[in-house]
Amino acid sequence: MKHDELKEKLLGLYDGPVSEKERTWVETHLACCEDCSAAMEEYKKTAAHLFAVPTFSEADEDIFTAKVMARVREKVLAPSLSFSQLAFRWLLPLAGSTVVAAWVLFSVLPSTPELANNINDPSFFTPQTVSINDNALTPVALTSSNEEMVVGWMRQ
C-alpha cells in the first residue's frame, strides 16, 4: 500500500478490525513516517476535545436511578389505575343509562295507553312537517294592564 493510500485509510486501519499482518504493517509505517503519525496525533487530539464526556459521580447515578424508577413505577401502576378509572367514569354510568333506557322502552312506554296504541302505527314514527305561525314571532305589545302587572312584579 502506498503512503497516500494509507494516509487516506489510516484511522480505519488503525482502530478498525484488521488482520494482525495489516496492524503490524500500519504500526511499522507509523513509526517511521512523520507525516502519517502527525496526522494521526492531530486527529486524536481533535477527537479528545470534541468528544470528551463528563464524569458522573455515584450520587449522580443514585439520583438518576431514583428518577427513572419513579417513572417506571408510575408506568407499572398506570394500567390498573386507568382501568378502574375507566370503569368508574364511563362503564358504570353507561351500563346504568342502558338499563334505564331499556326499562323505559320496554316497561314504561308500552303501559302508556295513548303510546301503546300509536306505537303500532308506522306513521307514528314518520316525521311531520311543522309550520311556524308567523304571529308567534311578532312581539306582543304591552297593554296598560300588562304594564301594571310588570310594575307590580318589580315592586315585589
Partner: peptide, 11 residues
C-alpha cells in the same frame, strides 16, 4: 430489579 440495569448502563 430494573434499577440494577439502570445503574449499570447509566454512564
Amino acid at each position: 430489579a430494573y434499577g440494577d440495569l439502570v445503574r449499570q448502563y447509566h454512564k
